[in-house]
Structure formats: C-alpha cells, structure tokens
C-alpha cells in the first residue's frame, strides 16, 4: 500500500477542516479555514491548501470522505459520513482508550459513545438552539467586545461567575446585556458563560453516560477556562487533541482508508 493517501474534508458551519494521511495513518497535513457562505468553495480551497502543504497532487489521493453539515456539497469526495461517526473514529485514532467523545462544534454539540474500534454506539446532540455551542461563544464575544482568544484565556475556576441561562442563546445574550448594565466585571461574565456551556454539555453527558476516557473535540476545546470547568464538573481529566478542530476530518480520512482496505479484502474473496 505504498504511496496511497487518504483525506477527510469536514465542512462545518464555522470552519472547513481537511486532514490528509498516508496509508499507515500518519498525518501529513491539516488545514482549517473559515467556511464563509459557500461550503463547496471552502472545501475546494481547504483541500487544495492541504494538498500543497503535504506536497501532493489531487490524483494521488485514493479516497476522500466528506463530513460535516456541508458534506453533500463536496463534489470531489469519494464517500460521505456524518461528523458524528467521523469524530468517533478520529478521537479513537488519537486516544485509543476513548470511550466517550464530547464535540463542541460551531452550531451543535454532541456526546458520542464509541466502542474499542472507534465505532459509534450511541450519541446525543443539542436541539434547535445554539446554547452550548461555538456559536454561543461567538455571539457572546461580540456582545462583550472580546475576541475568541480573549474569551478563551485561562480563568481562575474558583472565582466568581455571573449566573447565565444555559437553555437559550437569545435569553443568555439579554442576561449578558443586563449584567453589563450593572457593571458586572467582564471576567465574571465570561466565567458565567463558560459555566453555562459546561452545564449544557453536562446535561447531555448525563443523558447518555460516560464510558472509558473522554476526549474533547471541536474548536471550543481551545478554551482553557471552559476545559477546566468541564473537567471539574465531570470529575475527570479530558483528552485534548493538539488540533481539536480537525478531529472530524482526521476521522473522515481514516474512514476513507478503511473503506479502501475493505474494498481490497472484498476483491480478494
């Protein structure tokens, strides 16, 4: 299987991520770009950038799995799989003892249970509301006049936090406006926002349960304050990938690789 390469293209609501691996599963390149308004173009652009970074041509890629909410728009993909399965497979390859994946994505959050081969066993997703997602943080960052990096700075988890709703982004934003009007320190508001997301995620986790090690994926895993609060709430240490945003794309690449291997086995029967 020399010189065979596989890719996963994850077209999410906020970012489009591409991962390219070789036949042994070694990661050759990873790219994250904003999705913007055209998922198809973003996929094309991110894929070309990942090829360039890996010093490969398009013809050299044997299998490409499209995933994410825009998976149907990736015309050059050889297969498509939901981001739920892809995050499970990606987390498994990074942390083989993973039994539970928490993915906090741009427009939705998921808790996924996987088996020892990385296959999804069960999952739950947030419903019809951006509370507990990356979009929630983005909206609040705008309201607080902070950028996402500032919002992600490590915070003292023992400090005070302002009470903020964990059930609705719109209500939460109104609460933030009221808190600002009362001159509540921004640090307390940020802390309250993180706690709000953590509470939301925790309720999803309790509905499905925790098995094995827990791996956190999605861009929100960069938020150190939130990670600390989530670890405190769950009472465990989370696996945090080096590139949490590309775990879905990485899983997609591994699924493309597995599909190719399965097809070889089927041909040889």
């Amino acid at each position: 299987m020399a010189d065979l390469y596989f890719s996963g293209v994850d077209v999410g609501s906020l970012s489009t991520d591409v991962s390219i691996i070789d036949h042994g599963g070694k990661v050759l390149s990873e790219i994250v770009i904003p999705t913007g308004v055209n998922g198809s173009e973003a996929a094309e652009q991110a894929f070309n950038a990942a090829l360039k970074l890996a010093d490969l041509t398009r013809d050299s890629i044997t299998g490409i799995t499209a995933t994410g909410y825009g998976r149907a728009s990736v015309a050059f993909a050889t297969g498509k799989t939901t981001e739920i399965s892809c995050h499970g497979v990606g987390a498994h390859h990074l942390f083989p003892k993973t039994g539970t994946v928490i993915d906090i994505g741009g427009q939705d959050s998921k808790v996924i249970q996987i088996d020892r081969q990385g296959r999804m066993l069960d999952f739950t997703m947030n419903d019809k509301c951006a509370a507990g997602t990356g979009r929630f943080l983005e909206v609040m960052a705008n309201r607080l006049d902070l950028n996402l990096d500032e919002l992600s700075s490590p915070l003292n988890i023992e400090g005070d936090s302002a009470p903020i709703s964990s059930t609705c982004t719109v209500f939460a934003e109104s609460e933030v406006i009221s808190l600002l009007a009362k001159n509540t320190p921004r640090k307390e508001i940020v802390h309250g926002l993180q706690r709000s997301i953590v509470n939301r995620i925790w309720s999803m986790v309790t509905s499905i349960g925790i098995e094995g090690e827990v791996t956190l994926t999605g861009g929100v895993a960069h938020n150190k304050g939130l990670v600390a609060l989530l670890e405190e709430k769950l009472g465990l240490t989370l696996n945090i990938p080096e590139n949490p945003q590309t775990v879905g794309a990485l899983g997609g690449a591994h699924i493309a690789r597995r599909t190719y291997q399965n097809s070889l086995e089927a041909d040889s029967i």
Binding site: T82, R119, M120, F123
Partner: peptide, 18 residues
C-alpha cells in the same frame, strides 16, 4: 426536516448498518 435531524438520522443509519 432540519439539517440537524438529517445528521441524526444519517448517523443512526450508520450505526444500524454497522
């Protein structure tokens, strides 16, 4: 149906096909 529900159904289907 919403995009989220489509994803739910598709992911569930992937599980069934496993």
């Amino acid at each position: 149906i919403s995009g989220q529900d489509k994803t739910r159904i598709e992911a569930f289907t992937e599980r069934l096909f496993e």
